[in-house]
Amino acid sequence: MDWVARTAQLRQWTRSGVRAPHKPLLFLYALSRFQQAADDELRYSAVEEDLRRLLTEYGPGNRTTPAYPFHHLVSDGVWEVRTERGPGSPGTGVRELRATGAAGRLTPELRAALRRAPSLLGRMARVLLDLNFPPSLHAELCEAVGLELEEAGTGLLPAARRQRDRRMREVVLTAYAYQCAFCGYDGRIGSVPVGLEAAHVRWWAFDGPDDVENGLCLCSLHHKLFDKGVLGLGDGHGDGHGDGHGDGHRILVSQSFVGRSTAAREHVVALAGRPVIGPQPGVRPIAAAHRSWHTSEVFHGSPRPATTA
């Protein structure tokens, strides 16, 4: 059994770029619990809140019960569910899972494979991360599920792997004149930019291309907030001719974001409605399809009204 290949196929249940990380999140959580206590079952009623928190923080904006992946992951051959009545899941109903004492764990075959080859767990986890989440979230997601991974290659199969274009960072940073498109930060140490990153608007994990029409130069803070759905891109009133203000794009700030400090107000809340800085004249702006994907699949909730100067 090629468990890495089977892990890579979990993502095939998504359609047309719609984010549905429910199974990958449960699978990462289960791998973490196996790492901590190989033979423990995960009783649904005991892990429901953990799974709900993961779905809220790392899933799309639409609400989904943790019962959904708890039941449906069984069909992928890596997870089994038992109730007080015996083997088999009672379905996707929260009430049924609680009432029957439903508990799940990795299948016996997978647990045996993980014991024979301990490095397999890390390779499977990295496939789940690479195929479902941007790199900016990998470390904190591992921390959130309690997973410890050694620094290593991704373990992706050649057939499941696209090669990243190493030139994208330089192309995007140049297009935005080495300043954050949201706040204008342009720090350097000598001649080397520091704290500036090339963000994918449509995530690479969801077929986002490595090109300037899918890229934003963002500082580290705003890159993380953009990937977490706190910040987004909306239409503005630009003329579409590269006037230095993002070709009409304006910054969205989620109403779900709460920050009481002066720093939170100045660096996040105050961005609502501001024009995006750049790209430079002559550079292709962000493609509408990529912006729409981010708005529907990543941005959380409704945008705040524009702040007044």
Rank of each mutant, 00 (worst) to 15 (best):
E84D: 15
R164Q: 09
I286K: 03
A30N: 10
L173I: 11
H22V: 02
P303D: 04
F257M: 04
R167D: 14
W3Y: 11
P87M: 07
S292K: 14
L110A: 05
A46R: 15
N62H: 15
R115Y: 11
T92L: 06
Y58D: 01
E41D: 14
P193M: 09
H245P: 03
A159T: 15
L271E: 02
P279E: 09
A306N: 00
P193H: 12
R123H: 10
L31V: 08
K228C: 06
V269E: 08
R164H: 06
L54W: 00
L131F: 09
Q35K: 09
T307S: 15
L25W: 07
R63K: 11
F70I: 02
M124F: 08
L218I: 12
P66F: 10
D247E: 08
A177S: 15
G93D: 13
W79L: 08
P209Q: 08
L221R: 07
P193Q: 05
L156P: 02
E197I: 01
L218W: 03
A38H: 13
W203G: 10
R52H: 11
N132S: 12
L233F: 12
L120K: 01
R161H: 14
A205I: 05
S32P: 02
A125P: 02
A38V: 05
V201M: 07
T174I: 06
R6V: 04
R116N: 12
A199D: 04
P158T: 07
Y44P: 04
A287S: 11
L271K: 06
V192E: 15
E266C: 14
F70L: 07
G104Y: 05
E48D: 14
R169W: 01
R162Y: 11
G77E: 08
D186H: 15
